[in-house]
Nucleic acid binder design. Structure first.
Length: 205
DNA sequence: AACACGTACAACCGCCGATTA
DNA sequence: ATAATCGGCGGTTGTACGTGT
């Protein structure tokens, strides 16, 4: 392994270098980023910085109650499949959702409502509020939530869309599913052209 | 005002699967 | 067939900032 990679917080100069690199080479080939961009960061660090911070279309705004509801529901289905959950929340990264879950819900999962200061805040709307009545139609017949450690045998059909782990049936047809290869970095989608959580869910016709 | 504590978030680490030589 | 490399993912840590005492 190559020694001497820089670590720690990114500087604005490094961000600019990385943006320039992605502009000219695309957001791939992270292994060559150090050689081609002049950055003293390894590929993984560059990829992480790009995906979680620099990528166009990231919201970087507080989670809305609607987004909270989506996270709660999808986590109940998929568990800690943060990247999968993130595909349903354009403009949000898996890291962002993971952090949000840990700070807002994980403690309560262990000790419900322990945090008196957050109790009221936790009254997040259930997805019923925005998913309508047919939620159960797309869950397990007995209404059980699936094991959080669901694996391929239990439900993923990873053959459907390349490496995208689609559930064997989309749990919520009301929520457009956005695998990366569909959404990509389309500024229109990421900018909320189809999604506007500040108001209401805009469903594709 | 100073300190302690809690929260939020950026970033790193280790593992795993896919790809390539 | 297999070892090396790479990209992606989830878990964890470090720290800046806010809030309470």
């Amino acid at each position: 392994m190559r020694q001497g990679w820089r670590k720690g917080p990114w500087t604005p100069e490094e961000d600019e270098l990385l943006k320039e690199y992605v502009k000219s080479h695309g957001d791939c080939k992270w292994s060559s980023v150090a050689r081609l961009s002049g950055l003293k960061r390894n590929g993984k660090s560059c990829r992480l910085r790009w995906v979680n911070y620099l990528r166009p279309g990231l919201k970087r705004a507080p989670f809305t109650p609607l987004e909270e509801g989506i996270i709660i529901e999808l986590h109940a289905i998929w568990g800690n499949k943060w990247s999968t959950i993130a595909r349903y929340l354009p403009g949000r990264t898996d890291n962002e959702i993971k952090n949000y879950w840990r700070t807002h819900f994980k403690e309560r999962e262990d000790k419900p409502y322990r945090d008196h200061k957050q109790k009221d805040k936790f009254e997040a709307p259930t997805s019923d509020a925005f998913l309508g009545q047919n939620k159960k139609d797309h869950c397990q017949p007995d209404g059980e939530t699936r094991d959080h450690k669901m694996n391929d045998e239990q439900g993923y059909d990873s053959s459907s869309v390349g490496d995208q782990c689609l559930p064997w049936e989309t749990p919520y047809p009301e929520i457009p599913y956005w695998p990366d290869l569909v959404v990509g970095d389309d500024p229109f989608l990421w900018a909320g052209g189809l999604w506007n959580f500040d108001d209401d869910l805009v469903v594709l016709s």
